[in-house]
Design a binder for these strands. Structure first.
Lengths: 325, 325
DNA sequence: TCCTAGGTCTTGAACGATCAAATTCTGATA
DNA sequence: TATCAGAATTTGATCGTTCAAGACCTAGGA
């Protein structure tokens, strides 16, 4: 199999290189008859644009990068996994490819941006795990590198486009579901104040249930969840249901309830494998859609047809009902 | 910030383009003094090789591709996730980058190979989820595209290099641990015969325990695991311990044992998040090492210093002890 | 008939690196 | 001192594409 270049196609179709290029990139400037002839030649020869050559001329690689993190806490690991799958799919449909990288911390990540941009001419980045005082967004913005974050810019103005899950709506839904099921005292088991995601999840419960509920805050994890739940459940007026900020905490709560022999409904968050395995009712994030929206926003930015004001997308999660609530 | 090319560096160091190129690619042909001068210029200017330009000349992209699958069964999803992280790390250290793609089935994946090879000049592929009669390996081999599989070529001769986990050794270890703990009747809960991985896991148990044990085969999943375990545990001579082919099955077995009120030790496989969460003893795959070895084999292939005979690597898993055994 | 405008197509140069061949430098030998 | 081999360095061409500019054709108006 010989190498098929744009020149091969041009010869076959009896036109010049540039005409073939025009058929591919700006078809409307080529006469219909010629266009068809070139298209036939392309399929007959199985021609495909050589990205490296195109990139050298245009400076664009049709490559976007995203960081892959180790499954930190174990339970919540697969969330990113599902997002990645969705992003790869969406990127493929839009004619882009996804490149992975790892980084130890924010500064390491910024160094990687620098390297990826100058060595590979990356077109854009998708950032995950945004947090307060995130240095990554300002670095990218200062160099006007296109990017989108999955996760809103906590504590900063909306100077870039982002996609996020409406965490508060998720816990509010869960709480309303429990209220409708007749629960009178619904508690919340969450993380210490300060993390944007955690605060939002608490806020949703608070909004739906009002200022009366009991709540506890602890670091994430099954063990600490069990400890915190135990103290809530041995109160004078123990809750009959618990909304939790994660499936890990929820699992801990379930263990505490079983130990104490009390019947307490439990709802988790993230709809992880653990929830599916043990029948835990949980709030599920629409990760595939989030990924698709991220890609959509990036495509807008890269095509230069993005509105001057950043777009923000907030997706509602859904409650997956199982045995525990 | 001006664009820094090899010509910029050459000018700064007072040498020609080619000498700079030699410092980068074949340093030993450059006189030490010159080499140092060029290296200084490179760091001062922050020069980085433009991959697209290099690729156009050499035909090599320093990019390897791997397929990302949706977390199929939920529980086992994170296995690939951890492998991917390890691969990205290892690739980065070796000067390569990882590109992702998705595919609906083997033929779709082969079409993607074709596209990635001609459009992006991919250097190599890492295949996961190998199976009997896998058409992907022969397609790649026929075009002499470098690749390594994570998973041995089930039922086919070793015509390419591969890395795999010694599944049999894992279940054998688990079984020996149970024997040492005093268990006399150790059962096995696995999948129907025919899948290479499943058969190997059964074989390891069989090897360590001999031909006397009871076993059951069922499709993967918590529910089916519970059903199968229930029938084993209500036997005339119920096992006092169960070695399982997956954490899903193990979780099912635990549920069955709890229901029946019998005390049965359980060992799972894959050390997934679920195992960590519920304290399930499980066989853990050394995924980061597997990924690193895959990358090592690929690097050999790509540098042309691979032995003429394919290399095969079989890594022993390790038993993670928790409460259930 | 001539000129012009617009549509269509072609030509030469350029992107930034490496290859292959030519050239210059160096030091040892006769 | 002249010669020469080998090391060190430079020069010109090239990879496959797109940009910018020019050439050609056709139709319509003066």
């Amino acid at each position: 199999m010989e190498k098929v270049t744009i020149a091969t196609v041009a010869q076959r179709a009896g036109v010049s290189r540039q005409t073939v290029s025009n058929v591919i990139n700006t078809p409307d400037v080529v006469r219909e008859e010629t266009r068809e002839r070139v298209r036939e030649a392309i399929t007959e020869l199985g021609y495909r644009v050589n990205q490296a050559a195109r990139q050298m001329r245009t400076g664009r690689s049709r490559l976007i990068a995203v960081r892959i993190e180790p499954a930190r806490d174990g339970i919540n690991g697969s969330v990113l996994d599902r997002f990645l799958h969705g992003l790869t799919d969406a990127a493929g449909l839009a004619g882009y490819r996804v490149m992975l990288y790892t980084a130890a911390d924010d500064n390491d990540e910024i160094a990687t941006y620098d390297e990826l941009l100058s060595a590979y001419d990356l077109d854009a980045f998708v950032l995950t795990s945004t947090h307060h005082g995130d240095p990554r967004t300002s670095w990218l913005a200062a160099r006007s590198v296109p990017f989108v974050t999955f996760g809103r810019p906590w504590g900063a103005p909306d100077t870039h486009s982002w996609v996020d899950i409406d965490n508060a709506a998720g816990t509010a839904d869960a709480t309303r579901h429990l209220l409708a099921a007749g629960h009178q005292r619904i508690g919340f088991l969450g993380w210490p104040a300060g993390s944007g995601v955690g605060d939002a999840r608490r806020e949703g419960w608070h909004r739906a249930f009002g200022p009366w509920g009991v709540s506890a805050a602890t670091t994430d994890g099954v063990e600490s969840g069990a400890v915190a739940a135990r103290s809530l459940l041995t109160n004078d007026e123990p809750p009959s249901a618990l909304v939790c900020a994660s499936d890990s905490l929820a699992l801990g709560a379930l263990q505490a309830a079983r130990e104490l022999g009390c019947d307490c409904a439990v709802v988790g968050f993230d709809d992880t494998a653990v929830a599916q395995a043990i029948g835990l009712t949980s709030v599920s994030q629409p990760l595939a859609e989030a990924a698709a929206r991220c890609m959509g926003l990036l495509a807008e930015l890269l095509d230069g047809r993005a509105p001057s004001v950043p777009t923000t997308v907030l997706l509602p999660p859904s409650l997956v009902l199982r045995q525990t609530a």
